[in-house]
Simulated assay, not measured.
Amino acid sequence: MPMNRVQFQAGLSMPEFLERYGTEDKCRAALQAARWPKGFVCPACGGAARTRFERGGLPYWQCGGCQRQTSLISGTIFEASKLPLSRWFLDMQLLTQSKNNVSALELKRQLGVSYRSAWLMKHKILEAMRVAEGDRKLDGRIEVDDAYFGGEFCGGKTGRGTDNKVPFVAAVQTSPEGRPLYACLSAQPPTSEAMRAFAARHIAPSATVVSDGLWCFRATTRVGARHERIVTGGGKASMKLPQFKAVNTLLGNLKTAITGTYHAFDFAKYAHRYLAEFQFRFNRRFDMKNILPRLLQSLLAAPPSPEHSLRTAELGRLSGDQLPGDRPAGLGQPAD
């Protein structure tokens, strides 16, 4: 079997990371270069800097036009953080270079911070990933399938109708040879209404959508896409069909990444971010050396995310008639 060059690429090694971002000064320089590559630009009026000074160890600039004072981290997800930037950069390195997910508990140990700080840092980064991937558009041949996280309550309903499963949709754009290229993951029920909204945002009119026999996927034709419906019959045999190899492989890797990392978490509440984390890494896997600088650009483009907004339930994102329960069966209290 030939070597998978994407899987075996070098990536950004820890020695290389330390060479680029191993000190606080290096991290500040990298953040400043990413935020203002042509020099300071006032976020209020677009003016240039009149003076530069430091306060509390952070560099500040005063605009020559409106006189506003702006710190290096103001208006970013790093705003109000008491942790040094070097911890944030190490967090980004761990989250982007790991093959699977990294739990907040593991980040706590690796970063030497409290669990609350590790959780907050992680979810701020995941929220920026979600914003960056929010308008991802797929084209060409696209395999689509629905899937669920969570288990069945003892004595409860089984199958798609169980009260304790959280639904989501996976779409994978493939190459002419059938290899996966890019993906979109969305926490939503498999309904025609939800699929119409998904298609309008993520599927190009020139695409060809390949799905199983679930009728809701016909809604993708509303954007002009061509739809190929293949009745699989269900069961394990349907998962081996070559027409769905890309999406089934992605779903298998996704579930392995999550169940192999977390003992418990509130998927119904935070599904959109965990899916976005996997999607962000998957869609940038072809260049692992530069995934951290690309993540830094996404962090700077995302709005600040205070803790109260990160902990707000996102169940309203699921547009079905009934919303799933807060706690998937067998997962207990959220631990990540």
Rank of each mutant, 00 (worst) to 15 (best):
W215I: 11
K108F: 00
F244W: 05
M3K: 11
T174K: 08
R317A: 11
R311K: 15
R284V: 01
K122Q: 14
V210A: 12
M92F: 06
S71H: 05
P304L: 06
A219H: 08
Y21T: 01
N248C: 08
M129Y: 02
R196Q: 13
V102A: 05
C216E: 05
D336Y: 08
A10F: 00
H272S: 09
M121E: 00
K157T: 03
M1Y: 09
S13Q: 02
D287M: 03
T76A: 11
G330C: 07
T191W: 00
G178E: 06
H227G: 03
L299V: 14
R285P: 00
A171Y: 09
Q7V: 13
L120M: 07
G56Q: 08
T96Q: 12
S298G: 05
R294W: 07
G161E: 08
G56N: 14
L185F: 13
R281Q: 10
G22D: 00
E177P: 00
F89A: 09
Y148W: 13
K269G: 00
E79V: 07
N4H: 15
P189H: 13
L31H: 04
Q7N: 06
T259W: 08
F78W: 10
A128C: 15
C154F: 10
I77P: 07
Q67R: 15
S98Y: 09
A313W: 05
K245C: 06
G213F: 05
F168S: 08
Q62W: 07
R87V: 09
R68N: 08
P303T: 07
R52V: 10
P190Q: 09
L254S: 01
P176M: 06
A313F: 01
L295C: 03
P328H: 03
F8L: 14
Y60W: 15
D91R: 05
E79N: 11
R317F: 06
R317M: 12
S298V: 00
L90Q: 14
T208K: 03
L185V: 09
M14R: 11
R136D: 01
S13G: 07
A219M: 13
E228P: 02
V113C: 10
G155D: 11
R109K: 15
G224H: 13
M1F: 07
L90E: 14
A128Q: 09
A219E: 11
Y60A: 04
P328T: 09
P176Q: 10
Q97R: 06
R196E: 15
D163V: 07
G332E: 12
P43N: 12
T232R: 13
G235V: 10
M129H: 01
L18D: 12
A264K: 01
T220Q: 04
L18C: 10
R273V: 14
F217A: 04
Y274E: 01
S103L: 12
P43W: 11
